[in-house]
């Protein structure tokens, strides 16, 4: 099975266009830096180096990203911020993907009345604007601890993917191999996990890739409104908006966190787009 996966990964890599490969490498590097932040970062994220001499310093060799108004090293904070931003986004999207896939699969497998009720429920949830709902919830429970933020982002983001999964599962359900499995006596659980799940993964993978980008932006936006990640925890969002407060005098304090957000989002979007084109047979026609 692992040999299979390996060969599949190699084929996928070969199928990806050059920009997507570059973006994938950049993302791998970012994750590696985020994980290794304590080892790589020159200082501690909340360490005030010298509140008088090193306050609001521009980029230099000693502090490539400059320092903020509390004399904290911004390179360090951006590195630690990557941990928070990437972890929040990745975990939230994985949560959405799991919940959404499960919901879509159950609806498609159950069919009939259960399916109809589940879909109406989904319609209702989809019709509430996510950002507004999040603002309301986070404002009322402000400040929200990080795990709760992840849970809220994850639990409000799975509606679309479960729709995609259900649509895909409905068409797979009628295919011969599923009918064969069912006539051999496979139960609903086995049908879902062994036969439907592997065949609906393409939209889930694409959703996950594009979703991380969305959540990074969303988390940044919510932090901007003061309802996301809170000081002193650095996330790219809090760093960026912290920087905007005195933007004109200390442009570096917003530029570097902002660039980190933009670069990451761009890479995820490029990879997601390429994956959709490579993995989805329906796009082959137009490609």
């Amino acid at each position: 099975m692992f040999a299979d996966l390996n060969a599949g990964a190699r084929r996928l890599w070969a199928g990806l266009p050059l920009p997507a490969r570059v973006a994938l490498v950049v993302l791998a590097l970012l994750y590696a830096l985020a994980i290794a932040a304590p080892a790589v970062a020159p200082y501690l994220p909340s360490e005030q180096l010298d509140i008088v001499a090193l306050k609001d310093q521009g980029p230099s060799w000693a502090h490539p990203f400059g320092t903020d108004r509390y004399s904290r090293d911004l390179l360090t904070r951006v590195l630690y911020g990557a941990r928070v931003s990437l972890a929040v986004a990745t975990l939230a999207v994985l949560m959405s993907a799991v919940v959404g896939t499960a919901y879509g699969l159950v609806a498609a497998t159950a069919g009939g009345f259960v399916d109809a009720v589940m879909m109406r429920l989904l319609d209702a949830m989809l019709s509430i604007p996510r950002v507004l709902l999040l603002i309301a919830m986070l404002a009322l429970w402000n400040p929200v601890p990080l795990p709760a933020l992840v849970a809220l982002l994850g639990l409000t983001g799975w509606f679309e993917v479960s729709r995609l999964v259900r649509a895909e599962a409905l068409s797979v359900r009628e295919r011969d191999f599923v009918v064969a499995a069912r006539s051999l006596g496979a139960g609903a659980g086995r049908l879902m996990l062994r036969h439907l799940l592997p065949n609906v993964l393409v939209p889930v993978i694409v959703f996950t890739t594009l979703g991380v980008a969305n959540i990074i932006v969303l988390e940044a936006g919510l932090s901007f409104l003061g309802v996301g990640v809170h000081e002193p925890v650095p996330s790219w969002g809090t760093l960026f908006f912290d920087g905007t407060e005195a933007f004109v005098g200390t442009w570096w304090s917003a530029l570097f966190p902002g660039a980190a957000i933009v670069a990451t989002v761009l890479c995820f979007n490029i990879v997601g787009d390429a994956l959709r084109r490579v993995l989805d047979p329906r796009h082959l026609r137009s490609a």
């Binding site: 980008a213 932006v217 940044a220 936006g221 901007f224 960026f240 957000i261 933009v262 989002v265 979007n269």
Partner: peptide, 8 residues
Amino acid sequence: MASLPNFW
């Protein structure tokens, strides 16, 4: 452009 957050 589509990837840039509008606050940025």
